[in-house]
Design a protein around this nucleic acid. Structure first.
Lengths: 201, 201, 201, 201
DNA sequence: GATGAATGAGTGTTCATTCAT
DNA sequence: CATGAATGAACACTCATTCAT
């Protein structure tokens, strides 16, 4: 990449960060291009040198979230015990949610009303996430390490748990929720999803 | 309540229904007072005789969602087996989500950015829902019917599963998700949350 | 027409007049909706209750110019002498140009670049004007009162004379052009187009 | 002129040509400096090394149109017959319109609203054109070759014919107007303006 | 001299809200 | 009480112009 292209890419990323921050703060509709520009430290018109329009910013944020590195990382843990394995998945998901929090929150207000954004988000983020989950679950079941189950229910259920727990942490004022370390959270969920709530065998 | 007040209350409810429908369809920001008025079969100006402004409609929708009937219903099932009991909770939550779908979807876009709305929603809807869940879980654990666990993790996790599954059903185009009856869904979740995914005892 | 519709029609006409005035003064592109609103004595937003957008104002002005009454008026003069007849045509054209001067001038800046406006203008204004001219010329030639000629050249030529003379009067600062009454102008043009410039028979 | 100045003059002319082309295509207001720069094969900023601003380009185009060569050419035909003489004038005007079509069309949208441009255009283009026409007409009348007439009416009338015929050719889609060679056009106009439309002597 | 990225003032349009009828 | 025409503040986007490289 030439020096010129690199600078351009940096500027673009900077604008995208600013947009995610403002979208997360105000929601997509209430966010103004002026506020995004201020957040990025540039003039409003400059944004349009990098993005066609406001909505293109939103789609750019969605594109940023492509979940490639997940598969590679999880591949390393294929030989772990069931406990460690489920815990690894959960930990990875929590990390992803935390790292991309402003980007995810920037999208969430428009996901419900914007068809194209929803399709992109599902095909680029949710789909791959559920996909890897489903694939590994299937393999473990085939190996006999986990019991047979309806994957199309279990995988979204597990994912949903994390999403809601992450959302509650992000949205609720501090102190409402009891503080819990990530490890404790992961432990508890691992136990829940491996052994359930029934009283022993 | 006088005859006058009753009529007024009916009109108010009618407007609130219309607002929920339009908010669910377009999202709060894109919804126009004109469209809401048309949906309610009245003139735009009339809305302001019942609500102070657009946002007041949203808060009114949140107030509408108070989760009263839940407790009563669940009280009747206190003597059931663990399976039937968990299934009953899940079934009740699904019913609630389906019945109030436009109201819930109307709120969802603004929950993330509107502090007051969020507080109202959590204190009136989410809080009570989690509260009843927590209370019953606690009682069952005390009775020895379920194992001890971190309630503040388990209850949101279960609730989150349902929310995400409901959201996916509502948002994704038909055919993407395998069709599943409510009973099958409830069965699978009951099994998951009672016995987990591990292979046998 | 009901009282409501009449009021609406009046308002619409008032806005159209204001738009024509401002377009004539500034040209279509430089004219702002705010200035048009001020000229009409209303708020900017009100314009949009009567016209979809700025361009719709321009098309509305073009529609205003439909040249229906011309035929009827000229029909009365079918029995006149050649002199009186040509003079009548010329006088009618000058009257039309003068009466609709702001409307015509409002259109002229955009005619050159706006395909649809051009088509409307030609089919509704220029076409009919040239059409009646051509028809009467043809009849007079058939009657032997005027000599055979290429109508598609002569009619636009005559029309063009009037347009340019009207434009020069409208655009040039007073005093540059020698003052000339309409009658003198019509006399001179009649002589020109009936007998030409050659020195007698 | 030094080598430096010559190069600069060439560059200036190149920009002026590009500007005329783009102004003719889009109209002055819709034309962007970027498009003009692209048309000229340079960067937008470079234009400002040769012209103070966008409007200066327009004035530059008007200045380009000075009608010098006309007089010289017509001087050679002073001894022709009336027919040939009028035909020569007409032919020269048509040639001028055709040769400078983009330049003329570039000016036309702004002539109506820009006082200074209008003055320049009239003093440098229209004025001289009408002036030569008037002078020669006067001389011919003095010689007794043409009849006495109001020159301030006849000359603009003749000029207007050509302008309108040229504009109709330029603006209307092909096929609407019957095709006519320049010679046929000139013949017909010559006949019209020398002998008029009346039947016989 | 030439470049083209950055600027920011300016505009068409929307829509929540008001108020005369 | 109900209406809906009128309002005008707010905002996305454009583009002439500047200036650091």
């Amino acid at each position: 990449m030439t020096w010129r292209e690199e600078l351009r890419e940096q500027r673009r990323a900077r604008i995208l960060d600013a947009a995610a921050t403002v979208f997360a703060r105000r929601g997509y509709q209430r966010a103004t291009m002026k506020e995004i520009a201020t957040e990025a430290g540039i003039a409003p018109g400059t944004i349009y040198l990098y993005f066609a329009n406001k909505r293109d910013l939103l789609l750019g944020i969605a594109d940023q979230l492509i979940t490639r590195p997940v598969d590679r990382q999880l591949a390393d843990v294929a030989s772990l015990s069931a406990e460690d394995y489920v815990a690894a998945i959960l930990r990875e998901r929590i990390r992803f949610a935390r790292q991309n929090q402003p980007f995810l929150q920037a999208l969430v207000t428009e996901i419900w009303t914007d068809q194209e954004l929803r399709v992109r988000f599902f095909s680029q983020v949710i789909g791959p996430l559920l996909g890897t989950g489903a694939r590994y679950l299937q393999e473990r079941v085939a190996e006999g390490k986990l019991r047979p189950c309806r994957i199309e229910v279990v995988v979204p259920a597990v994912a949903g748990s994390i999403v809601i727990l992450a959302a509650m942490r992000a949205l609720l004022p501090n102190g409402v929720l009891p503080k819990l370390s990530d490890d404790e959270l992961v432990d508890e969920l691992t136990r829940l999803y491996l052994y359930g709530l029934s009283t022993g065998p």
